[in-house]
Design a protein around this nucleic acid. Sequence first.
DNA 1: CGATTCTTTGAAAACAGTCAATCTGTGTGG
DNA 2: CCACACAGATTGACTGTTTTCAAAGAATCG
Lengths: 192, 192
Amino acid sequence: MFEVFKTYITDKIELTDQELDMIRAAGVVKRLRKRQYLLQEGDIDVHKKFILKGCLRQYRMGDDGAEHIMRFAIENWWISDRESYTTGLPSKCYIDAIEESEILMWHKSAWEQLVEDVPALQSFEKNLLARSFNASQNRIHAAISYTAEEKYQNFLNTFPDIFNRVPLLMIASYLGISRETLSRIRKQFVNK
Amino acid sequence: MFEVFKTYITDKIELTDQELDMIRAAGVVKRLRKRQYLLQEGDIDVHKKFILKGCLRQYRMGDDGAEHIMRFAIENWWISDRESYTTGLPSKCYIDAIEESEILMWHKSAWEQLVEDVPALQSFEKNLLARSFNASQNRIHAAISYTAEEKYQNFLNTFPDIFNRVPLLMIASYLGISRETLSRIRKQFVNK
DNA sequence: CGATTCTTTGAAAACAGTCAATCTGTGTGG
DNA sequence: CCACACAGATTGACTGTTTTCAAAGAATCG
């Protein structure tokens, strides 16, 4: 399964065989069953995590126990609680598997060593964070300016490879609307 | 006015007098009147910009001409369209002054040279982006999980030094609610 | 098949948005 | 210095959307 990562990373940056071996050697594969946690509130996130296969969600829990989904992620995406990872503080969020999944992960210390030894990883990381930030800006814009229907439409356009892999109630949670409302919006859609 | 920046930056990172001089020499001060644009949609953002004084807003324009405020920023904050700055593509947003303001700015090429020459700036930048990302995550969480009233309360708590410097209608825009609704929420607040 | 999870639906209530009018404070020009 | 324009805030009445609650119907999984 390392092949999945190899294909991904060599498409983005130039790596020598030796560098690739170093990265492989430091990584660990973790298999997750559906509903299994990868991170829980209060944990400290100490791993870089790349999804080889499957689908996961990252969410925060409201005071009333409601789950608010911050993000979905599928194969070839990275997933972590950046805040906890960078600050070393307990996480405010949960990450769990929506589908049976496979994760390739590196301990923070090992990863930092890799970034030091492999210069290409440095700019790659910077780039990844910049793009994550841009994505979150677009999400904020959608959240404050779109109607519920537009939010759903936008979600379909933005994540064509995700929307049919996650339950509707989770999409509703992601968009900040109730599942009933989303169900009704979807009904109107079909009629068009 | 460079003093404002000097105080800010030397509080965050260690700099030699020489490095500080380099940074000063490369920077340009720009004065803005109230309502004056610092960036308009379609422009390419080619400057690192630090606010020495004043208050600005960054917003996107909806198809219907409605302004959706992405961010406020005051003295000792940075402001730019990161997306346009990093990608070199035309900006989707506007930045203008809410108060008469003073900006310290560096052209992208000059700034990149500085970052190369002054190592401390490198990690500083990385850190700043990481914190911006965390802030945007918190904003997303608020947008999808809070009621209008909670959004307002959260805004007051998060930006105690901003809420009384910007018009209510802009706070409403930032929160994604109508000014009338915010006005009514505020009224209830006073009664408590 | 039984249990669980997810989706849909209906009806009522709560909420937020729109429109229109008024009020307030600020600043500008005569 | 006053009158006026203008930006911003508030209010009321109305409309439309969204949530909530409750129940029932699919779909999935062991």
